[in-house]
Amino acid sequence: MRGPVDGVDWFEVITENLMVDGGNPRRVAREVRAHHPVVLHGVGLSIGSTDPLDARYLDRLAALCDELEPALVSDHLCWTTLGGHNTHDLLPMPYTEAALAHVAARVAAVQERLGRRILLENPSTYAVYRGAELTEAAFLAELATRADCGLLLDVNNVYVSCTNHGWDARAYLASLPAARVGYLHLAGHSHGETLLIDTHDAPVIEEVWALYAEAVRRFPDAATCLERDDDIPALDVLVAELSRARAVAAEHAA
């Protein structure tokens, strides 16, 4: 990369890839940051775990914030680590009052440590614990209020989870407080044997584009990030997909 990337306003970078001492990941991040705003997007905060918060992880995250001055810092409503074992997967939370109180306290502690608000993303889920006391959307909405955090709404994840569990995707969107939704994710997914799988390796499908139109109507101030983690096409293909997102937003945002 030499200079700004045409057609891209800002970039999201995976936080953990930069928690290293040197090399190409940090060099590229610095070059991107020299020309564009960046958002730090983590997969390892493990905000829902019953393990203690990882102080060393938070120290490195704070140092990255100082270095890159990200516009936003986000992670997922999930847990990855238990008993010190990191599964490297975004595992689902029980949607109970006890879990809500637990996560809200931990979000507050993280925000205190970083000195800034974070945003949490709705993950794609394939299982729901028995005994849920709230819907996923109600959990997120209440969490954002209690912990004073933001929400990263992944429209593809809403579609995947709602399809997998028989939820109403539009009711999901309607449950979220607009003022808390900081930005949106768009991505593709794949079909497993019985469930949709969030793979981020394909173009956005038409049903998700339709849901995205609904999302930008409800959250007109939220920016949009197009995600692609695998089978990454040429940049101009991604920029064309991003242009469609801009067109949808221009048409549907209030």
């Binding site: 847990w79 595992l91 689902p92 029980p94 109970t96 006890a98 879990a99 109180a101 637990h102 299982a127």
Partner: peptide
């Protein structure tokens, strides 16, 4: 921390 929450997470972790 809720014992029920911890039990749910521990079961899923072991099951995975």
């Amino acid at each position: 921390m809720s014992a029920a929450l911890d039990a749910q997470l521990r079961w899923l972790h072991a099951a995975i």
